[in-house]
Amino acid sequence: MLDQNNGYEFAGPGRKRRERLALANIEQAFTPRTIKPKIAPKYRPQETPKRETREITERGLKSKIRLLTIQTESFKEVCDELERANISASGILVSNYRTPMREIVALLIEEGLIDKRRLERYQREHQRGRKKMSERS
């Protein structure tokens, strides 16, 4: 039977065992625990040097992504070019600037303000230039 404090003082079978367990738990709660010292690792791996990133303004980064969008065909190429230039930019950031620029270029091609063949030739020229630059490195 439970009393108002939800205790089992008046409960029948097992009362003594519960009292002993409760006392043991109280004693364990107040005994000081031993704190194990941290062991220093014997082997400490060398830290890899972090790549230095170029500081670039938001406006400069935006214009760089837009220019790379015109010069390249794929998202991956834009990200690779930014990485080669040591510019830190996430994929989401690149996508947020690249998508509207692609829509604008598509609209200008559709309206006839940009020649599609000339744009493809421009992209090929820049692709060749990038290949030459990567061969030198």
Score class of each variant (00 low, 15 high):
66 R>P: 01
99 T>V: 06
97 Y>V: 00
74 S>F: 04
60 G>Q: 15
77 E>G: 03
57 T>G: 15
25 N>S: 05
50 K>T: 14
112 G>M: 07
96 N>Y: 01
88 S>W: 01
22 A>D: 07
38 K>G: 09
83 E>A: 13
61 L>T: 07
119 L>N: 04
67 L>E: 06
106 A>H: 02
18 R>M: 01
24 A>T: 09
53 T>K: 07
14 G>P: 01
106 A>P: 07
16 K>H: 02
109 I>S: 09
72 T>D: 01
63 S>D: 12
119 L>T: 06
41 P>E: 12
75 F>M: 12
103 E>D: 06
113 L>V: 02
97 Y>H: 02
83 E>C: 03
32 P>L: 07
29 A>Y: 09
106 A>G: 04
53 T>A: 06
39 I>W: 09
89 A>R: 12
122 Y>K: 09
109 I>R: 05
17 R>F: 00
89 A>Y: 06
65 I>K: 01
84 R>N: 12
16 K>G: 00
120 E>R: 10
122 Y>L: 15
36 K>F: 08
118 R>H: 11
54 R>T: 13
125 E>I: 07
18 R>E: 01
65 I>S: 05
111 E>T: 03
47 E>M: 12
51 R>T: 15
20 R>E: 11
14 G>N: 05
107 L>E: 13
47 E>N: 08
51 R>L: 15
121 R>A: 09
84 R>F: 09
123 Q>Y: 03
46 Q>T: 13
89 A>K: 11
80 D>A: 13
31 T>D: 11
53 T>L: 13
71 Q>H: 03
57 T>I: 10
113 L>I: 09
31 T>R: 13
119 L>I: 10
94 V>N: 06
86 N>A: 11
74 S>Y: 07
14 G>H: 02
76 K>G: 10
101 M>R: 03
32 P>K: 07
78 V>W: 00
76 K>A: 14
40 A>Y: 11
106 A>L: 03
54 R>E: 13
38 K>R: 15
37 P>S: 12
109 I>P: 05
46 Q>I: 11
22 A>C: 02
125 E>R: 09
35 I>E: 10
58 E>K: 12
125 E>Y: 05
15 R>S: 01
86 N>R: 14
100 P>T: 01
75 F>Y: 15
35 I>H: 05
35 I>G: 00
29 A>I: 04
101 M>S: 02
24 A>P: 02
114 I>P: 04
93 L>A: 11
53 T>H: 08
33 R>M: 14
60 G>S: 15
106 A>D: 14
70 I>H: 04
122 Y>P: 03
28 Q>D: 12
113 L>F: 12
16 K>Q: 03
89 A>N: 07
56 I>M: 15
18 R>F: 00
96 N>E: 12
54 R>H: 09
94 V>Q: 05
106 A>E: 15
86 N>W: 04
63 S>I: 14
98 R>S: 02
72 T>E: 07
76 K>W: 06
111 E>N: 08
92 I>V: 04
54 R>A: 14
99 T>K: 10
45 P>R: 06
97 Y>Q: 00
87 I>H: 08
67 L>H: 06
59 R>Q: 14
64 K>V: 14
91 G>P: 14
18 R>T: 00
